[in-house]
Design a protein around this nucleic acid. Structure first.
Length: 707
RNA sequence: GGGCCCGUAGCUCAGUGGUUAGAGCAGGGGACUCAUAAUCCCUUGGUCGUGUGUUCGAAUCACACCGGGCCUACCA
């Protein structure tokens, strides 16, 4: 067999954000990257798989504050959780770093220096709304006000959802900071920009012609960005910001999207320190200007822009190697819909592991991933049927139904005539490998399953169970048939090893020792012992799926979403912090004064029927010290009388017409001044005078239930 | 509004110019009993979204339309 020259591949997955746990959407990316890397190694190439936690940015800062601990404590805990999830899914990183590392800080500095030397950095004043109470500049999404075009209320700072108009936040009428409620003022702030337009020609050429970018993606970039001058990239954020301070711009921090991709390099450097070699061997260019290694980035479609424009621009400016391939995938849907907490389809990696075998998901994803950017649907019914039929019924069954006849005798001394079955599957090996290489794992799995079908048909035709009963004169024939079956099984295990490393191990234990190379699928084994058969995989039962969905509902309810302003609901990859998000320094006092209540279940919560209601009448109760008498409408002609303890904080006349939230199924209570038929929900607590009524967003109608 | 992708058997999809369009699952019938209600054989089922065109020949190419999805809407 001709030996292909050994390739050197550096492979990455996007860095998961340290703001949340790994879920099945993330795993679409990490599993396919892991499969790709394992495949390359099995083919005899050197492939290193690098990743890291993405730790910087506003969301981390806010969450750490909300949880009353330092950013470092938060990201250390999240890193541990991430690594445990990845490890248990058999995702084998060669190194897993952190963007909050000395190596990353140093490398950011070097890239920054390169940008400076090529005079690609400019400073500009930016007019922005500033929250004087919270002491921060406000990103568009942290400002609300009245649309300057149509007069619609309660609109964000960048666009009106009612009339579709877009505008600058400074144009908003009656703007309000969503952080503090204060009225923002217009201030100037100094920001640093990278003038990537200077690299326009390079980027146009690279995205269109290098082969690194899928033509469809290249076309998208061409239409959206490269058809006109590239805008300067706002690369800095003023304090307060959790990140690296820019060395030559005190008080300014690198925006998280600057230091995140550099994390790929930092992880490489740390790996080199442990394993040997130099960073330049992976990220450098040789004397002819060609990369010294292949670089493959696996990313979700949401972060194409950063990996195909900014990141190559940075690398080019620094004279570093450019990505060989940016492999873009879609998001995960479950049962055809976006993952949903209420449906129990927002499934955390950990929750899955508590109910099911990680190999089953690895196989299912592999069978569905065809290298395109379309979303991948996890249909739970199909999942059950497919993994049971393919892995258990076809592949594992091959060994399960024949291996025991070889425990005493071992494999036949010479590989028997199998009608060309082994040779056929061996010949398919290159087509399977080509499919893996192209990222079309679905095609690879189809080819493997065809081979499994042929193998099972062979066993049925040979009827070894009859030979087993036929007595000693049939023993040789039985050994031959079983030897063929076990060899065909091991051959499939080789092809499936990138997807199912555990199955490959078990196959090696059963016969022939560890599977180390793809070429083992071309040589049948003979004359060696066969170990006692151990079950390889358990069927997925409907009850397990139901338990997983039920647990996902409660797991989400139990985890405190408060203080985690960024949630990656459907994205398979992260690294996407809300651009230009700023925070206020929220005090800890309210939470400290009243710690969280005991955990409750979704069922507990479901007993409380919260409804939107409109206040149709409000009047003073002269004798009462704290109470106002409210009449609220739940829609139609359903009204309730509610006594609310908000006297002194709210003017009754101003309340009329306002939407509030009421507990609609609270048992009526006789009070001194009458019967109260519900309760208006309001916030109050330490650190603030007052009682704050809750209001729904525009569009809510009386009678709508809160969940 | 613009861009891109998709629409093939009940479901998931393969097939991208050439003989009567395929697979898996599901359905029906049978076989087998070694195996985790596993396996094997046979079988039902499709005017390949619609229309027009190019061609000796179209699921496959072009155009239009219908339906679904993703991205984008002067933001990165």
């Amino acid at each position: 067999m001709p030996t292909a020259p050994q390739r050197r591949l550096l492979v990455t997955s996007a860095l998961p954000y340290a703001n949340g746990h790994i879920h099945l959407g993330h795993l679409v990316e990490y599993l396919q990257t892991d499969i790709f890397v394992r495949f390359q190694r099995l083919r005899g190439h050197q492939a290193i798989y690098l990743c890291a936690d993405d730790t910087h940015g506003t969301a981390i800062m806010l969450r750490a504050r909300a949880e009353g601990r330092s950013e470092q404590e938060l990201i250390a805990a999240m890193r541990e959780a991430h690594l445990a999830d990845f490890t248990d899914f058999q995702i084998a990183f060669d190194h897993y770093g952190s963007t909050d590392s000395p190596a990353n800080r140093r490398l950011c500095g070097e890239l920054w220096q390169a940008l400076r030397e090529r005079e690609l950095v400019v400073t500009r004043e930016v007019q922005q709304l500033y929250d004087p109470e919270a002491g921060v500049f406000l990103a568009d999404r942290f400002v609300k006000g009245t649309c300057p075009k149509c007069g619609g209320g309660d609109q964000y700072g960048d666009a009106c959802e009612q009339c579709g108009a877009t505008y600058a936040p400074t144009e908003l009428v009656d703007p309000v900071s969503t952080l503090s409620g204060a009225r923002p003022e217009v201030r100037s702030a100094e920001h640093l920009f990278v003038t990537i337009e200077a690299l326009h020609e390079f980027l146009a050429q690279w995205t269109q012609d290098s082969g690194a970018v899928d033509p469809r993606i290249a076309n998208y970039l061409n239409g959206h960005f490269l058809s006109e001058p590239l805008r300067d990239w706002d690369i800095s954020r003023p304090a307060p910001y959790f990140g690296f301070e820019i060395p030559d711009a005190p008080g300014q921090y690198w925006y998280v999207w600057f230091d995140a991709p550099v994390g790929y390099m930092a992880a490489t450097e740390e790996w080199c320190q442990q394993q040997g070699g130099r960073l330049e061997d992976w990220w450098g260019r040789d004397d002819a200007g060609n990369p010294r290694a292949e670089i493959h980035h696996f990313i979700g479609k949401d972060i194409v822009y950063f990996h195909t424009l900014f990141w190559p621009a940075m690398l080019e400016a620094a004279g570093l190697a450019l990505p060989t391939k940016v492999r873009v995938h879609g998001f995960l849907t479950v049962n055809g819909q976006k993952m949903s907490k209420s449906r129990g389809t927002f499934i955390l990696a950990r929750t899955y592991l508590e109910h099911l075998d990680p190999g089953m998901l690895r196989y299912y994803y592999a069978a569905k991933i065809s290298g395109g950017i379309d979303d991948l649907d996890l249909n739970l019914e199909e999942f059950t049927a497919k993994v049971n039929a393919d892995i258990v019924g076809k592949v594992a069954n091959l060994a399960s139904r024949t291996a025991r006849w070889l425990t005493a005798s071992g494999l036949s001394a010479v590989y028997p005539d199998d009608g060309g079955l082994f040779a056929k599957a061996a010949a398919d090996g290159e087509a399977i490998a080509a499919a893996y290489e192209a990222g079309d794992f679905a095609r690879a799995m189809r080819l493997v399953m065809q081979a499994a079908d042929r193998a099972n048909a062979y066993i049925d035709a040979e009827q070894p169970w009859k030979l087993a009963k036929a007595g000693p004169e049939a023993a040789g024939r039985l050994q031959d048939v079983a030897s063929v079956a076990v060899n065909l099984f091991r051959q499939l295990a080789v092809y499936l090893a990138p997807v199912l490393p555990r199955l490959a191990e078990q196959a090696g234990t059963l016969v022939g020792g560890p599977i180390r190379h793809w070429a083992e699928a071309t040589r049948p084994l003979a004359g060696i012992p066969v170990a006692g058969f151990q079950p390889l995989a358990r069927r997925v039962e409907q009850a397990q799926i139901e338990a997983l969905v039920a647990a996902s509902r409660s797991a989400v309810e139990a985890s405190p979403p408060a203080g985690s302003p960024v949630t990656h609901t459907s994205g398979a990859s992260t690294m996407d912090e809300t651009p230009a998000a700023f925070s206020s320094a929220d005090p800890a006092a309210p939470l400290e004064a009243e710690p969280l209540a005991e955990e409750c279940t979704i069922d507990d919560f479901g007993k409380v029927d919260l409804r939107v209601a409109r206040i149709v009448a409000a009047e003073e109760v002269p004798e009462a010290r704290k109470l106002l008498k409210l009449t609220v409408s739940l829609g139609g002609d359903v009204t309730r009388t509610v006594f609310a303890g908000i006297k002194g904080f709210h003017d009754p006349a101003a309340l009329v017409g306002r939407l509030v939230v009421v507990v609609a199924n609270l048992a009526p209570r006789k009070m001194k001044f009458g019967l109260s038929e519900g309760m208006v929900v309001a916030a109050s607590g330490a650190g603030a005078e007052g009682v704050f009524l809750l209001s729904p967003d525009t569009g809510a109608l009386p009678g709508m239930r809160l969940r």
